[in-house]
Design a binder for these strands. Structure first.
Lengths: 222, 222
DNA sequence: CGATCTTTCGAACAAGTGTTCGATGATAGA
DNA sequence: TCTATCATCGAACACTTGTTCGAAAGATCG
């Protein structure tokens, strides 16, 4: 996500954000003191406040940066793809891929969503709502195309996010299946559940072979 | 869960637990001070410590009481039921039913799982592990019976818990579908996803008609 | 060098934290 | 009524919290 030439300031800010995210993920936002952050970043306590003006803004910056990246990459991936099944598949893969490779940030995003208040909370929530709405409308289109009836797409959407976001509670990259496998589990489980198996092979869905992820091992065929 | 004659002490303890759970659910465990609890329960600050010996033990008691109830009721429901599809269906219904009717406690259970440490944490985790293992073995049996291959049942189990537990983040009983509808969504989504639609009607699964829940409205047929 | 930013820091503050302790009222059995 | 146990409380303690402020060091450039 870097690759652009960043100022010394930006580089250090990002370093602080990443380090803080790790500490927040480990101990939880409220149990982490600014002195913990100071220790982890090897900066003085007061020095931190040059980069943000409150602990809450630090949390906001982490969440905002994280959310932006996921959403931007998601839109980048989806442009040009028309088939809704493929679109959903890509979205799930993108979400989980970022999740697994940035577990601290995503844990903070998932777990500390309500540790933020006021205007900052509102800002984050606008992003979140847009992301959720994207999935809802995607499911709406799916339901329209495949004549699915009687399904609350909002509920289905949030159940899908539940599957994905809850993973910060249990997913262990060293013991569990890898990202591609996880994506396949979620995609297959959700899609065939949602569509009732009517149109899985349609839409070019074949055991995740054409994923954008580097490592691809289908766990569904064998 | 009451119905047994409780001592004055027990009654008051339960009242404190329920009230505290509400406050913890609203503000979060760490952001809630013992003075907040004191205010909500209308007891003096020091008076609270007659019922538990630390804030953390208070959290433990809430989680322990909550977990026991869910698990006990689950075992009660499952005894005598052999068909694994029906068993899973009942388990999901029980979980979500308790979830929706005790949202504060379940939010505390889901969200504050790591706010507890040491021995108390270990105790809670034993219960949790047993509950998870129950579902895993249930999926194992399902997979065996219906010849499902290549699915990591642990992953599938935790995705299922993700769907259910994440709901504390979004489920609004006044706006969303009711408990029965929610259960049906989850059951249908997960089961037909997991089984790949091979054996849904087998095992007596028909749009949730035979649920143990009082109010039953299938959203899948119409 | 000297001047002007940018970045870092030590020390301190005011507020809030969980918990303890000794004492007081309530309750019930003798 | 005396007594022993249960239940409650006010006041205080020791400690941690996020944040501020003024000064100092580093960098940049004429």
């Amino acid at each position: 996500m870097p690759s652009e030439p960043q100022s010394k300031y930006d580089q250090k800010l990002v370093h602080v954000l990443k380090t803080s995210a790790r500490v927040f993920a480990d101990k939880g936002y409220h149990s982490t003191s600014m002195r913990d952050i100071s220790r982890a970043t090897k900066m003085s306590l007061s020095g931190l406040y040059y980069y943000f003006k409150s602990k809450e803004e630090l949390l906001f910056l982490i969440q905002d940066y994280c959310f932006s990246t996921v959403i931007d990459e998601c839109h980048r991936l989806l442009t040009g793809v028309d088939d809704p099944v493929r679109r959903l598949k890509l979205l799930i893969e993108n979400h989980l891929n970022y999740f697994v490779h940035n577990m601290s940030e995503m844990k903070v995003l998932s777990h500390e969503a309500n540790s933020i208040t006021g205007d900052l909370f509102r800002k984050i929530n606008i992003r979140k709502r847009r992301y959720v709405d994207l999935v809802i409308s995607l499911l709406d289109e799916l339901a329209r195309r495949y004549q699915i009836k009687g399904v609350d797409t909002r509920v289905a959407t949030l159940l899908l996010f539940g599957m994905m976001n809850w993973s910060y509670n249990w997913y262990n990259p060293r013991k569990d299946v890898d990202v591609a496998g996880l994506s396949n589990h979620v995609t297959r489980l959700f899609l065939s559940g949602f569509l009732g198996d009517t149109a899985l092979e349609a839409g070019g869905f074949e055991a995740g072979r054409e994923s954008h992820l580097a490592r691809e091992v289908s766990i569904w065929e064998q």
